[in-house]
Amino acid sequence: MASPMRVNDMKRVYVNEKWCLGCRLCEYNCAFASSGIRYMAKALKGKAIFPKIHVEGDDGITFAVSCRHCTDPICVKSCIAGAIYKEDGVVKINREKCVGCLTCVLVCPYGALAPGSDGVMQKCELCTQSGGEPACVKGCPNRAIVYEER
């Protein structure tokens, strides 16, 4: 029998809500990183942004939420299009297959999924396409968002 994959041995994005300023720079950095456009102003200025991380909270506390890359992800089990899958511990979505039924929104306990500008679902894939630290982590001015193993 194949040895079970040690999915926990991977870095994930974590947020220290005590340090989060609620500045939403992570949202802009995420949307920019996903845009594939070279210049930030060209990618974002005057446009509604559709980041894969978002800031929630109130006057008292703020925190950024993105995919937890669960050990046993309910979105993968629930996707009616077979579009969400797990690869090397990272929960990914095949946007070609997604039909926008929003079942993943209905089941994610963290509220981590939202559609992109085209109505097709998108989700944090830890900037695996670009490599290195996720853009939200790199751009966080107070190091409230970290990328580490826990």
Partner: peptide, 25 residues
Amino acid sequence: EILKKIATSAAFSSQIRGKKFGGVV
């Protein structure tokens, strides 16, 4: 009261949030 208006994890205590967002789930 918050949750009825908006679905947000801000309606949880920071301990529950810590569990949900602070480690591997």
